[in-house]
Design a protein around this nucleic acid. Structure first.
Ligand SMILES: NC(=O)c1ccc[n+]([C@@H]2O[C@H](COP(=O)([O-])OP(=O)(O)OC[C@H]3O[C@@H](n4cnc5c(N)ncnc54)[C@H](O)[C@@H]3O)[C@@H](O)[C@H]2O)c1
Ligand SMILES: NC(=O)c1ccc[n+]([C@@H]2O[C@H](COP(=O)([O-])OP(=O)(O)OC[C@H]3O[C@@H](n4cnc5c(N)ncnc54)[C@H](O)[C@@H]3O)[C@@H](O)[C@H]2O)c1
Lengths: 211, 211
DNA sequence: ATTTTTTTGTGAATTTTTTCTCAAATGGAG
DNA sequence: CTCCATTTGAGAAAAAATTCACAAAAAAAT
């Protein structure tokens, strides 16, 4: 079913958007949706959607469209989010706490099972269901808790150190919220969430309206 | 100097990364950097950097490279971030508060000047320097405070309503943290910051390692 | 039963983005 | 002053992504 062809990152990102919209449609009781309708809702071209889906297989019915429920299940399946992914947060400051309290994450298949910080005054403190643990114990905990994804929310000048701990712990995927690039071995995947990049895009666009 | 050609969004996004790295280099006392070196640090191809910069003009010296200080200034200038942009946050929950307390934002040229929520129990409460104001007063405040960017951190089912208030207030740029698409007039720019999209990319990559 | 309408899936065409190449410029060494 | 080592800027080539266009399939209408 899955073709061997490399699937572009943008396709995966759009897939996440389609999934979001499909879940909204399901909630509204829609049973079937056409690529044209979904495209409108997501702000893309309809053949974009069909091409994206074609990387993974055939999911539609000609003359009808896609069954919302089934398509959601298929997408979750091939994106690898039918099951729950255990995550650890490193750096329990403003943003780390916000993410710890972000309830909808678990609905989306991600569970924060470890909260790590290096500040002795924070270690032992409880946030929600979790106790803040010393970053040095990440390696030991990663195995016990089956942690697959590390989330960095330390200040930028500490991000590399946090990354080193995560890599040391054998975790192969990192989301980095600190606005700095980190160096990791080739077999570790890093994705950056950079708020200021988005703001910069907006300021640039505002500055160049009509040009 | 600035060519009339449309500048791709990815170029602007990479520009933000170059800027980040250049500022780190400046802090370390580096005065000159070659596109090759910068490319290595940012994890891109060196001609990518030269092509990206070419959209805006010529900034390098052949045989030498780029003067870090000057290049930073040039980039800030053409991205429109030499000046400060006033922003409003709509939805003062976990994430909204984290952003309000995010001090480095102002260093990057963005100032949160208004905090809005619709919950009567929150209105009047102080967070940092700001008092939480009723969302209905956004329009009036947007003018007084010269707000140019709206940041949505409401629950997803309230994001459209928040967007409507922002549009009503005459603000032309929105960052939406809620995991849902919003509808706005053509002259309003929306950029989405979606945490789960990043997590999905990682789970997909982990699920397909070596395929 | 046949025609019409709808909508998918996919090759082909187009557009966009990235990478390759190299002449031209610069500074330093001899 | 000439030669050599660097490195930019930009045209050409290659690769990737998007959009077009339409046959094939399914359902609805006649
Ligand atoms: N606050 C926001 O809304 C926001 C938004 C976007 C990006 N960011 C980025 O996210 C990061 C965190 O921001 P914040 O506002 O939460 O900062 P913060 O200072 O409130 O929190 C940082 C936390 O990291 C901990 N820490 C430092 N070094 C560590 C290490 N080596 N190992 C483990 N923990 C360590 C600190 O003890 C602190 O608790 C920053 O890089 C910031 O630029 C923040
Ligand atoms: N918490 C996180 O770390 C995190 C991470 C990524 C994305 N998000 C997204 O960000 C959004 C906010 O998350 P949160 O955890 O802060 O939620 P939250 O429930 O803590 O906060 C939401 C706030 O929005 C306010 N609100 C509701 N409707 C409003 C309206 N019409 N106008 C103004 N304010 C309104 C509520 O009163 C509340 O204060 C959600 O959409 C969430 O999916 C959160």
């Amino acid at each position: 079913m899955l073709k061997k062809e490399k699937i572009p990152k943008v396709t995966i990102q759009r897939m996440a958007v389609y999934l979001q919209m499909l879940e909204e449609l399901e909630e509204e009781g829609e049973e079937v949706v056409s690529s044209t309708r979904l495209a409108e809702l997501c702000g893309v071209n309809s053949s974009q959607i069909r091409k994206d889906l074609a990387y993974f297989g055939e999911f539609g019915v000609r003359g009808v469209g896609y069954y919302v429920r089934d398509l959601i299940a298929s997408i979750k399946h091939f994106l690898g989010i039918q099951k729950v992914w255990n995550c650890a947060i490193v750096g329990i400051g403003n943003l780390g706490r916000a993410i710890l309290r972000y309830k909808d994450l678990s609905k989306k298949g991600y569970k924060i099972v470890g909260a790590f910080d290096c500040d002795p005054f924070k270690i032992g403190e409880r946030v929600g269901d979790l106790e803040i643990i010393c970053t040095r114990r990440l390696k030991e905990k990663a195995k016990d808790l089956n942690i697959k994804i590390g989330i960095i929310t330390t200040p930028p000048n500490r991000a590399q150190r946090a990354a080193n701990h995560i890599v040391e712990a054998g975790i192969k995927a990192i989301v980095n919220f600190a606005p700095t690039r980190i160096q990791v071995p080739d077999d570790v995947i890093v994705d950056y969430v950079d708020f200021s990049t988005h703001l910069i895009y907006l300021s640039f666009s505002l500055s160049n309206l009509g040009k």
